[in-house]
Computed example of a mutant assay.
Amino acid sequence: MTMTALVTSTVVDYEASADLTSLLVRTTQNDALSVPAETLRLSCKCAHCTRARFDGRFPETFPGIAITEIGDLGYGLNIAFSDGHNRGIYPKTYLLRLAGR
């Protein structure tokens, strides 16, 4: 009986694009992926954004949003945006889903 190991890709490197409009990630499978800053901002699952969605106060778009800071928490990234929002933590598996993986 042979067993095939299931290899799960994860984020191993990241940076903001030169124009700050996308998060560029590299995976353990050596894939280079990009997630637009607006997609990240719209996909934030922090308590503040979750409550704003519940109350109907969450914007439908974030035109011109930029990534201003990225903090590595090991299991995910804390991303700050040009609108001042800095509460979002994006687990690496979630980032890959947002990138279409």
Results as ranks from 00 to 15, higher is better:
residue 2 T to A: 15
residue 2 T to G: 07
residue 2 T to H: 11
residue 2 T to Y: 13
residue 5 A to C: 08
residue 5 A to N: 07
residue 6 L to P: 01
residue 6 L to S: 10
residue 8 T to R: 13
residue 8 T to F: 05
residue 10 T to I: 14
residue 11 V to T: 11
residue 13 D to Q: 11
residue 13 D to C: 09
residue 14 Y to R: 02
residue 14 Y to E: 00
residue 15 E to L: 14
residue 15 E to Q: 15
residue 16 A to Q: 09
residue 17 S to K: 11
residue 18 A to E: 15
residue 19 D to K: 13
residue 19 D to Y: 05
residue 20 L to E: 04
residue 21 T to K: 09
residue 22 S to I: 03
residue 22 S to V: 06
residue 22 S to R: 15
residue 23 L to I: 13
residue 24 L to G: 00
residue 24 L to D: 01
residue 25 V to W: 02
residue 26 R to D: 02
residue 27 T to Y: 12
residue 27 T to D: 04
residue 28 T to P: 01
residue 29 Q to D: 13
residue 29 Q to N: 13
residue 30 N to W: 05
residue 30 N to I: 11
residue 30 N to Q: 14
residue 31 D to R: 15
residue 32 A to C: 06
residue 32 A to F: 10
residue 32 A to N: 07
residue 33 L to M: 13
residue 34 S to D: 04
residue 35 V to Y: 07
residue 35 V to K: 08
residue 36 P to E: 14
residue 36 P to D: 12
residue 37 A to P: 04
residue 38 E to T: 11
residue 38 E to R: 13
residue 39 T to D: 05
residue 40 L to R: 13
residue 40 L to E: 12
residue 41 R to I: 06
residue 43 S to C: 06
residue 43 S to F: 03
residue 44 C to R: 08
residue 46 C to K: 07
residue 46 C to G: 08
residue 47 A to Y: 01
residue 48 H to R: 10
residue 48 H to E: 12
residue 48 H to S: 14
residue 49 C to V: 03
residue 49 C to F: 11
residue 49 C to T: 08
residue 50 T to W: 00
residue 50 T to S: 12
residue 54 F to T: 14
residue 54 F to V: 01
residue 54 F to R: 10
residue 55 D to M: 13
residue 55 D to Y: 05
residue 55 D to I: 08
residue 56 G to C: 05
residue 58 F to N: 04
residue 59 P to Y: 00
residue 59 P to S: 06
residue 60 E to I: 04
residue 60 E to F: 00
residue 60 E to M: 07
residue 60 E to G: 14
residue 61 T to K: 11
residue 61 T to V: 11
residue 61 T to I: 04
residue 61 T to L: 04
residue 62 F to N: 03
residue 62 F to L: 08
residue 62 F to M: 06
residue 63 P to Y: 04
residue 63 P to K: 13
residue 63 P to D: 02
residue 64 G to A: 05
residue 64 G to N: 04
residue 67 I to Y: 01
residue 67 I to R: 02
residue 68 T to G: 12
residue 68 T to S: 14
residue 68 T to K: 11
residue 70 I to C: 07
residue 70 I to P: 09
residue 71 G to A: 15
residue 71 G to N: 09
residue 72 D to T: 02
residue 72 D to H: 12
residue 73 L to K: 05
residue 73 L to R: 00
residue 74 G to W: 00
residue 75 Y to D: 05
residue 75 Y to Q: 07
residue 75 Y to V: 06
residue 76 G to Q: 02
residue 76 G to I: 06
residue 76 G to A: 12
residue 77 L to H: 03
residue 80 A to C: 02
residue 80 A to D: 02
residue 81 F to Q: 03
residue 82 S to W: 11
residue 82 S to G: 08
residue 83 D to M: 04
residue 83 D to N: 10
residue 84 G to P: 05
residue 84 G to K: 03
residue 85 H to M: 09
residue 85 H to C: 09
residue 86 N to P: 00
residue 87 R to H: 06
residue 87 R to A: 14
residue 89 I to V: 15
residue 90 Y to D: 01
residue 91 P to T: 08
residue 91 P to K: 00
residue 92 K to E: 01
residue 93 T to Q: 12
residue 93 T to P: 05
residue 94 Y to L: 14
residue 94 Y to N: 06
residue 94 Y to F: 13
residue 94 Y to C: 03
residue 96 L to H: 08
residue 97 R to F: 00
residue 97 R to E: 15
residue 98 L to G: 07
residue 99 A to S: 06
residue 99 A to G: 12
residue 99 A to L: 13
residue 99 A to T: 09
residue 100 G to M: 10
residue 101 R to F: 15
residue 101 R to I: 14
residue 101 R to T: 06
